[in-house]
C-alpha cells in the first residue's frame, strides 16, 4: 500500500488505473484550487491509507488530459476494475472525496 499520493505521468497512468481501484486528480501547478484539492487528498489519504490516490499534471501530460476530455482542473476521476466510474471537478472536503470514491 502506497502511503503517499503517487505522481503519475503518461507512462505510468494506464498501469496505475488498471491495477488499482483509485482516485486520480488532474491538476495544474499555478492553480490555487488544485493546491487545495491536493491538500484535501493528503488529509483524506491520512485517514484512509487503503485507498490508492494519485495525481497527474494536465499541463505536463496534456495528451492524457485531452484523451480523457478534462475540461477544468482540479478534476478527480474514480477508477474501479480498470474503468472510470465517476468524475467530479472543483474543490471538495476530505469527506466528500472519500464519499465520491466509496459511492462509485
Amino acid at each position: 500500500m502506497e502511503e503517499k499520493i503517487t505522481l503519475l505521468n503518461r507512462e505510468s497512468f494506464g498501469e496505475f488505473v488498471k491495477n488499482n481501484d483509485c482516485l486520480v486528480a488532474f491538476f495544474k501547478s499555478k492553480c490555487p484550487n488544485c493546491k487545495v484539492l491536493l491538500k484535501v487528498m493528503e488529509k483524506c489519504k491520512a485517514g484512509r491509507p487503503e485507498i490508492a490516490m494519485a495525481c497527474i499534471s494536465s499541463e505536463d501530460e496534456e495528451a492524457v488530459a485531452r484523451m480523457l476530455a478534462i475540461g477544468r482542473v482540479p478534476t478527480v476521476l474514480v477508477y474501479k476494475g480498470g474503468e472510470e466510474k465517476t468524475r467530479k471537478s472543483g474543490v471538495m472536503k476530505p469527506a466528500e472525496l472519500e464519499d465520491l470514491y466509496l459511492r462509485a
Partner: peptide, 14 residues
Amino acid sequence: DDHIHYCSLCDGNF
C-alpha cells in the same frame, strides 16, 4: 456549472 468559473488562474487556459 462546468463552464461557469470564479478563478481564471485555475480554468482560463481551457
